Simulated assay, not measured.
Amino acid sequence: MPERNVEFGKYGARGLKGHEAVARRLDALAGFVATSVTVRRGLLARLHYLTRSDHARQAARRAGLTVTDRTMKAWLDGRRSPSKKNLDTIEAAYRTVRRHNVGRYLLARLNREGRGTRVEFHPLNQSQVPRPRQRVIEYRTLNVRHWDRIVQAWVEDDDEALDDAWVSDVVVDLGSQWGEYEYVTNVGFAA
Rank of each mutant, 00 (worst) to 15 (best):
N125T: 01
L26F: 08
V155P: 06
T66Q: 11
R25G: 04
E20Y: 06
Y183V: 05
R131P: 01
R104G: 09
G78K: 06
A30K: 07
Y94E: 11
T141D: 05
H48L: 11
N86D: 10
W147G: 02
A34V: 05
A63P: 05
A93I: 03
R46E: 14
E113A: 15
V144A: 08
A74Y: 03
H55N: 12
T71W: 01
K17W: 11
H100N: 10
D158N: 15
I90A: 13
G179C: 10
T96P: 00
N186D: 15
D54N: 13
P82D: 06
L174F: 07
L47E: 13
G18D: 03
K85D: 13
Q152N: 03
T38R: 15
A153K: 01
E160V: 15
Y181Q: 09
V151D: 03
V33Y: 13
S53W: 02
E180G: 02
A93D: 08
Y183Q: 08
Y183S: 04
R95L: 08
W75C: 02
L50Q: 05
R24I: 10
R149I: 00
A153S: 12
R133G: 04
Y181I: 07
L29F: 10
R41M: 10
A74R: 12
R80K: 12
N111W: 06
V136P: 00
R99Y: 05
Y11Q: 04
R140V: 09
L29T: 07
V167L: 08
Q126I: 03
L106A: 04
A34Q: 11
A56G: 12
R25W: 03
R95F: 04
G12F: 01
G175R: 12
D27Q: 08
P123Q: 01
R79M: 09
E182G: 00
V67D: 06
E182Y: 07
N5H: 04
N186K: 13
E160A: 15
P2S: 10
N5Y: 06
E113T: 08
Q126F: 09
S81Q: 04
R99H: 09
G31Y: 02
A74E: 05
Q134R: 15
G103S: 15
T71G: 00
A60K: 11
L124G: 00
E180M: 10
H19P: 01
W154F: 09
I150K: 05
E180Y: 10
R52A: 04
T38S: 11
H100M: 03
T117E: 06
T35R: 13
Q58P: 00
T71M: 13
Q128H: 04
R112H: 06
Y181G: 12
T68A: 14
H122C: 09
Y105T: 13
K85I: 03
N86T: 14
K17N: 04
L65C: 07
P130M: 11
S83W: 01
V172W: 08
E91N: 12
L142P: 02
R112D: 12
D163M: 11
A191Q: 01
H146D: 15
R79F: 09
A153F: 03
S127C: 02
G18V: 14
V33R: 06
R57H: 04
L43K: 12
G179N: 11
G78F: 03
S168T: 14
